[in-house]
Write a protein that binds this DNA or RNA. Structure first.
Lengths: 290, 290
DNA sequence: TTAACTAATGCGAAAACTGCATTAAATATG
DNA sequence: CATATTTAATGCAGTTTTCGCATTAGTTAA
């Protein structure tokens, strides 16, 4: 049984037409027919009900379509990862990160990496769903920066630094002149909130914060992109609460007022990772925070 | 890339010897050598560092050994399941169950199945780790009876019946004569406990029960096998708490005293299961509880 | 230095795979 | 109702791949 044959099966299972499928995969109809027969024989399972006119998946075929689709993707991911391990310093390392670090920490970090491992290629992704654990364990990313410590036993999670959470207000906002930093005075302000209703770590931290100061902010806009929010604050559309990191977005006209709460940045990678370059990359991340 | 080739690789990765491996898999050394070369070429990854004397896995090879071992097992499981789906009523259905139901419910159930689906083969397992969800989702079992409702969105979980939890004491135990059923009088009794420290549902239910009646029983023996405990009670080694089902173990000299607490039995199967026989089996389980 | 060991490779035979052309059965068309 | 069209299976012959044998070549042990 060839992975290729399984792939042929998956395409045929979608097309349900031998000729069209054969054309798509650049083999003859007869060859395809025999590949499918060979699969069926090896499995001892009929995959398609076919008369001379129609092709239809059997129940077992439907099941294998589901399962094999998943497995083939996993194989692909595994083989890519093996390739990366072999290539080492000349290979690719995938990094996912929260948007907040893209102004200060991440550029610094990339600069250090570039000067020390000049041949290393990086794949940078800002994940939307924030499911760092799954991304790591499925080998879709190699290093994940996160705001919370990952507790999975197959993942190493190391704190890099803490930073304050800040109130972001327009430069000439009345609150800037206030001596007291009593947040509850802001009850009637319009808040622009990043991911309050999402399941991100920062989102739940925000919820806690609002409960602590005992008020429900009037939120006008919710965005999943912090950089957007900073710009909206500059345009006086509202105020917001963001990690200190956004200060380095250098947005004129926005004042960042530090609150007592802190938020951390963690670096996460797979336990027992064989790719030495990944360990090196982690070391550099730790180093620049010393 | 053939699944067979991957299997060859895995055996060689263990043996680290071409000749011995070739012998094991009944092909010539030259053929094996070329299969490995073909794998390496197709992946673009060197799997073994080999000179004329030694064979050693590369890092990428180690990685693939780990990953492929897992994937090949999964493939095997998937293919078995496909076979079962095809065979339908003449196939095999795997069932896991808690030991308590093996005296009354399970024999009844099997009898009904046998008379209605006489050609169906059953694989019965009493799982030790009780991780029903994983067993189901990995296709290692098709139907899992459990004491708690499984909440996984990919699993259907249906309550079959409730039964009381019972105090199991020797027939001539002093408590049998008591009019009051005040459990706390049993503070100084020796309890034989099934799975109190394990993570089973019944175990945690027991813990709650002891907290409710506000006493810590003197446990002398812990067994993971309820049937054993009933026998030990008969021999007056101690008393115990068990689901009502154990009454049907027909152990002479043991008296079952019903408590107020109840415990349920659920039947669980995969959502969207394609094997129609599995649905039929579920229906029979529901039917005999009406 | 020689012997023993072991992975790779050349080679011819066997097996598997390929596409072409054809067959066979089902449906569509007139 | 006869004929044309569609489409999966199959016979066949050429090509490619795979197989094992025998040999080579490099390493280690005696």
């Amino acid at each position: 049984m060839t992975l290729q044959q399984i792939n042929y099966f998956l395409i045929l299972a979608k097309e349900l037409h031998f000729w069209k499928t054969a054309e798509k995969i650049f083999i003859s109809q007869s060859s395809l027919s025999r590949h499918i027969q060979s699969l069926e024989e090896e499995l001892g399972v009929v995959l398609f009900e076919r008369d001379k006119r129609n092709v239809k998946l059997t129940n077992a075929g439907k099941f294998l379509q589901e399962q094999w689709t998943i497995k083939l993707k996993e194989f692909d991911q595994i083989h890519r990862q093996a390739k990366k391990i072999e290539e080492g310093e000349f290979g690719v390392v995938s990094i996912t990160y929260p948007g907040s670090i893209s102004y200060k920490f991440l550029p610094n970090f990339l600069e250090v990496l570039n000067s020390n491992l000049p041949d290393l290629k990086l794949e940078l992704t800002e994940p939307t769903d924030e499911n760092h654990e799954k991304l790591l364990l499925d080998y879709r990313t190699d290093i994940a920066f996160s705001r919370d410590q990952l507790k999975n036993p197959s993942i190493e999670s190391l704190k890099l630094y803490s930073e304050p959470i800040c109130l972001a207000v327009p430069k000439d906002h009345w609150f800037v002149q206030q001596k007291s930093r009593d947040i509850s005075k802001l009850k009637n302000e319009k808040f622009l909130i990043s991911g309050l209703h999402q399941t991100t770590f920062f989102g739940s931290l925000l919820r806690e914060l609002f409960i602590k100061y005992d008020f429900e902010p009037i939120t006008t806009i919710e965005s999943d992109f912090g950089g957007m929010i900073v710009n909206l604050v500059a345009k006086k559309i509202g105020i917001s609460i963001l990690p200190y990191s956004y200060k380095f977005s250098n947005t004129k006209d926005v004042k960042f007022i530090e609150l007592d709460e802190k938020i951390d940045l963690y670096i996460n990678w797979r336990k027992g990772e064989l790719n030495k370059t990944i360990h090196k990359v982690v070391e550099f991340a730790v180093l620049i925070n010393k």
